[in-house]
Write a protein that binds this DNA or RNA. Structure first.
Length: 258
DNA sequence: ATGCCTGCTTGCAGCAGA
């Protein structure tokens, strides 16, 4: 089974690229982030025509997440809210059961400019995620937390670490929160499969970042022990970032033993 | 220190992204 995550940066603005990639990569399950459209504008028909069922939670202009499953595979929605803050109106989390795997699809807040209220929101969100993650792990079920974490875990995951020290993606407290989360018992799938390799999943639109390979690794798969045991391979479809009218992220995927 | 690009808006400049 192949499961992918892709921050599309506008599901309608980049629909052509999404459909082209779906056809090429044929993942069984896909977590999307940054739909940037309200629920009624989600391109459900185009995605269905491409052969995928979908559930989605959008929002006007910003955020938005979706889970897609190929063919007849059912998607059982668990929640579309990350518990812990009734006032939080951002569409950043969806949880569903697909092929007996619990999948948390997430779009973690960026947090910039930092310090400030946006960083505070990010750190609180990370705490809420850690609380949810702990509950999911305790279920002893196959679980994965997947998506755009907006966290650069280590210096190996950024082209020029010294430029990012004060950035909300790389600040010590953010990296520490991520590390603490992983230490609950999760496996960072891409890093685990490729311990010393430079792996990027995002290249900014500025200054020809993709051409210079000035990237970041911020899209992650965290696997519970049961899924970690089934992990076969991982990858980044980097070439997709080079397509016309593309997102600033590339699709990332893992393969699991069925 | 800022803007660089890009997508989105009851838009045509401003915000957010990372």
């Amino acid at each position: 089974m192949k499961i992918a995550t892709y921050n599309v940066n506008g599901v309608n603005g980049h629909l052509t690229v999404l459909l082209r990639w779906l056809k090429e990569a044929a993942p069984d399950v896909v977590c999307l982030q940054e739909l940037k459209c309200p629920n009624e504008k989600f391109p459900a028909k185009a995605i269905q025509d491409a052969g995928y069922n979908a559930i989605w939670h959008g929002q006007k202009s910003w955020n938005g997440v979706a889970i897609l499953a190929r063919g007849d595979t059912a998607i059982h929605e668990v929640t579309r809210v990350l518990p812990g803050d009734d006032e939080d109106s951002h569409s950043r989390y969806m949880e569903a059961i697909v092929n007996d795997i619990v999948i948390g699809c997430l779009y973690l807040p960026n947090g910039n400019p930092a310090p400030g209220p946006k960083l505070d929101y990010k750190l609180t969100w990370l705490e809420r995620l850690a609380a949810r993650a702990k509950i999911l792990l305790a279920m002893k079920a196959p679980v994965m937390l997947v998506g755009d974490f907006n966290v650069i875990p280590t210096e190996l995951d950024v082209y020029k670490p010294e430029r990012w020290t004060d950035d909300a993606l790389f600040r010590p407290e953010v990296r520490m929160a991520f590390k603490t989360l992983v230490a609950q018992g999760w496996a960072d799938a891409l890093r685990k499969m490729h311990p010393n390799e430079k792996i990027y999943t995002f290249w900014d639109y500025f200054r020809n970042a993709y051409g210079r390979d000035a990237g970041l690794r911020i899209d992650h798969f965290l696997l519970s022990p049961k899924l970690d045991k089934r992990l076969l391979s991982t990858g980044v479809d980097k070439h997709v970032r080079g397509w016309e009218k593309t997102s600033d992220h590339a699709p990332v995927w893992i393969e699991l033993k069925d």
